[in-house]
Structures are given as C-alpha cells and as structure tokens.
Design a protein around this nucleic acid. Structure first.
Length: 459
RNA sequence: GGCGGGGUGGCAGAGUGGUUAUGCAGCGGCCUGCAAAGCCGUGUACGGCGGUUCGAUUCCGCCCUUCGCCUCCA
C-alpha cells in the first residue's frame, strides 16, 4: 500500500484516491521569464518519478503542470528586452520543454498557461465577491478577505494572529486586513490587461492555479505538489480561494519537495546562486543529473556542487558497468515477486523512497557482476526504467559522455590508437602499449582489456 | 520575533529500540604483462546533556547548531 507524506498532517498516510485506480495530480510549474535552474529541474524530475510510479502501480494518472506566463517579473523582463511578453514566454516555455525532455521528464497530461484561463479566473473571483469573501478596493484591486475563511493556515500551520504582516513589508493601504491577498491587479499603463466586471486589470498569482485545477481536475482532487517555498502563502491561498468558491474540500494530499542548495543555502534567483539546467548539462550527462536528484529523498535538502555531481557520475558508471554486455535485453514484464523487485516496490511505496530503491539497484548490480547472470541485468534495467534511468545502451553511455577537455580524440582516432596498442602488445612491446594507454588516459579515455578484446570509455 | 524541517562514518545519503544500508573515496588481497573494470576483505557513524528502557543513533525533555517560510521564489 502506497504511503504519501502530506504537508497537511506532516505524516505519511495511506494513499486512497478519490476514484479507484485514478490519480488527479497538479503541480505548480514555473514562471517563464528565464531558463530553468536546478531547483526547477528537481520539481520536474521528482513529480515525473511520482507519476511513473503511479502508472507502474496501475493508476490512470491525470497530471497537470501549469505555467505562469503573466506576472510582474515577466512584464519587467519583457520591457527590459524590448519584446512582447508573448515572445518572451514562448521562448522560455520552449526552453523549459527542451530541458525537461533531456532530463527524461515525460510531458504532463496538460500544461496549461495562465493567460489562457483568465475568463475562468474572473468568474471565480466573481463567485468570491458574490459570497462577500472578496472585495474591490478603491484603487481597483480585488482582495481576498482572509478573515472570512476559517480554515486559513491549515496547510502552513501559520496562525493568523502570529502573522504579523507589516513587520517585514510595508502594508498595502488598500487592504482591509494586512493578511488579505490580491486576486486581481488593476491595470497600470503599458501593461497587458483583461476586462472584468469590476474593471480592467490582470489576475493575481494564486488565482491562476485554483482556476486551472478546477478546469482540469474539478473542485476536489487527489494531490497537489510543488516546491517547499510554495507552501506559504501560495498553496495556503489556493486552498482559501478554491474551498471558499466551491464550498468543497480542495486537495487530499499536499506534496512539497525540498530545495536544491548551494553551499548550504537555498538556490534561488534572488540570491543569484543558481545554476541553469543548460549550464549543468554542458558538463554532465542529463542522466547523471537525474540520478543525482533521485538518489536523495524528494523531501530532503539537496546540496549541489561539482564534486557531488562527479560522485553521482561515478555511481551511475557502476550501474551501467553491470549492464555491459546485456544490451539485447528483451522487453519483459517485471516480476514483482522477485525479492529485489519486492524490496524496490516497498521502498517506492514508502513515500517514494528513491534512495532505498536505488540501493536495491546497486545490490542487483553486485549480484549481476558476481554471477554473470543476465537475469539480474534484465531486472536491473527494468527497475532502473521505472525511475527513468539506465535505458541507454551501456556503450553509448560510456562513450558519449560530455567531452569537457580535449575533444580532438574522435572515435576513429581512439579506435586507431587502440589498434596500434594491440599490435604493440602482440609483439611484447609493453612500453609502447602503455604509452598509448597513458596518452588516451590523459585525454580522459580509459581502456579496458579483457579476453574479449579492448574496450574504451570516457571518464 | 512567530512557525517548521535538519544535524548519521573522509564525502554523499537511507534507515532502525538490540543484528551489514547503499554509493563515492581510501586501504589490503584476487584477477591482469602492467592497468582498468569486477570480485573478496576492511572502517568502535549516528550534534551535546539528561530521562524512559534490560538495552537508544532510533522514544521524551532541554541545549547547541544549521536551513527554510513569514516579501517574489520550485
């Protein structure tokens, strides 16, 4: 039985879907005004893993990962670049999809954009106004009156009385209560806007998720996820909006993944300590990045450094080494009664414990190396596939690694040197043979002699 | 200030009231012309102080420390 940790109760609970064998899942995607950084990559990879596991477990998953394509930062960036927000956001949506694809992240069922659902947001805001939960201020903004929603704070554990709003930011004078948040921003000059019954403007951030969730998943769905930093206020506000508008519960399980850190600090745009996915992929294979992220539990903080990625690469090498020579693995259905598979399943069912699941992979690799049995390699590849790993041809994995230093060693050149070395060895000229090997090693290429011949790999 | 999550062997990172996590790195051995890979062997790790217990890294309390949220943020 699958257990999921939900932020609502801060403990693991048995997963019981609203509809048998179906999962409705929404994850807050990104605001598209720049390239994805590793923090975004973590969200995408983690929930991709979650979706894959649900599917393997026999669930029919509807996965919505929405895109924020209208907000202050987007408007600002478009103005700086002297381009329209449509052109700006289209570019970064494309970049995001490319990054996701290279990291082995399967496309979500739906990837809606906020600007396509403004009508829906307007009608939702209208419902809240009709219920006297939202109010229009004299400046044209529309706010949500937090005091009108009794459940406010149930997700984040923040009690209204403790939220001394105004302690750290200047209070918006148009709010009736400092805790109130904006649903609709009145239009300012030169900004894109939509027409609403109470005036022109654009939606606030939180309402878009409530609207898109309602559209794709209904008033009440199974799981909502995102980065830890969205728990408050974003998700708390979503609950307030949706539950007040629908008079129904919103989400049963809230999943929040931990941050990626640099030097023990949260990776973020404001701290300017982030690495984009593209920067990292210039030096490491995408699968190494995916492996690096999955080898930590999704709720734990994950420190990023070159050293850690290097470490992950060596670990992944070990797994692929065990797969060598087993390229022609037939597509077989997984035997979940196998002790290793069973252990893997138990780990995954325990709140998606991928570190433990990956430990099973290493045990399997060891057994495969020891016995030389193809059965182990087949299972290893199959279980790896459940996590979106180990699906490359091993030779390709070892030979197509990202070349950082000397790229003058082409495959032909390498093969040629290997032939020279073989000739030298046959005549007992080990000095020459070792010299060639050293030359290749200095270029980052390792040779491996075996009774079957000489093979090479990068790294 | 309020609230919340952490502190595990050289590094990364799971887990558990008593018995090997796992990986990387290191050391010794086997294999090899020598290597590499692999295999075998190898490390008195659980922040501090009390408490509960036959027994705690694991439960409880306090302390230290660290990170995060409370403002945009995945």
């Amino acid at each position: 039985m699958l257990k999921i940790h939900t932020s609502l109760t801060k403990c693991k609970q048995n997963f019981v879907p609203l509809t048998p064998n179906k999962v409705t899942l929404s994850v807050c995607g990104m605001t598209v005004y720049d390239y994805c950084h590793l923090g975004h990559a973590r969200v995408m990879i983690v929930f991709d893993m979650v979706v894959r596991w649900f599917r393997v477990s026999g669930f029919d998953v509807t996965y919505v990962r929405n895109i924020t394509d209208i907000d202050d930062k987007i408007i600002k960036r478009a103005q700086e670049n002297n381009e329209t927000i449509e052109i700006l956001t289209a570019r970064f949506i494309r970049a995001m999809d490319e990054d996701a694809a290279s990291l082995g992240v399967l496309p979500p069922s739906y990837e809606p954009r906020a600007t396509q659902y403004v009508e829906k947001m307007i009608s939702m805001i209208q419902v809240l106004m009709d219920k006297d939960i939202a109010y229009a201020a004299s400046n044209g903004d529309v706010y949500y009156a937090v005091s009108r929603f009794p459940g406010y704070g149930k997700l984040s554990g923040k009690v209204s009385a403790d939220l001394y709003a105004g302690e750290r930011v200047t209070v918006d004078p148009y709010k009736k209560d400092p805790l109130d948040f904006v649903l609709w921003k009145a239009v300012k000059s030169n900004e894109p806007c939509w027409t609403a019954p109470w005036g022109k403007g654009r939606p606030g951030w939180h309402i878009e998720c409530s609207a898109m969730c309602e559209h794709y998943l209904g008033n009440h769905f199974d799981i909502h996820g995102g980065g830890q930093d969205l728990q408050f206020p974003h998700h708390e506000n979503e609950i307030a909006q949706s539950e007040a508008a629908h008079d129904a519960p919103f989400v049963n399980y809230w999943m929040h993944n931990g941050f990626v850190r640099i030097d023990n600090e949260k990776m973020s745009k404001s701290l300017d300590n982030f690495f984009t996915v593209r920067e990292v992929l210039a030096c490491y294979q995408p699968e190494v990045v995916r492996f690096f992220i999955l080898r930590a539990h999704y709720r734990s903080p994950l420190n990023y450094s070159d050293g850690h990625l290097e470490d992950a690469r060596h670990s992944l090498d070990r797994l692929y080494t065990a797969l060598k020579g087993s390229v022609e693995i037939a597509k077989k259905t997984l035997d979940w009664n196998d002790p290793h598979a069973k252990r893997f399943m138990e780990a995954m069912d325990d709140d998606f414990n991928t570190p433990e699941a990956i430990a099973v992979l290493f045990d399997l690799a060891n057994e495969t190396n020891k016995t030389g049995m193809r059965k182990g390699a087949i299972l290893l590849k199959s279980l790896g596939g459940v996590l979106g790993l180990l699906q490359q041809d091993p030779q390709q994995y070892f030979q197509n690694k990202v070349v950082i230093g000397d790229s003058s060693f082409t495959t032909e050149h390498i093969e040629q040197l290997i032939q020279h070395r073989i000739a030298a060895r046959e005549t007992g000229n080990y000095t020459k043979a070792d010299h060639i090997r050293k030359e290749l090693l200095d270029a980052g290429i390792t040779l491996e002699d075996s009774p079957q011949g000489t093979t090479w790999r990068r790294g």
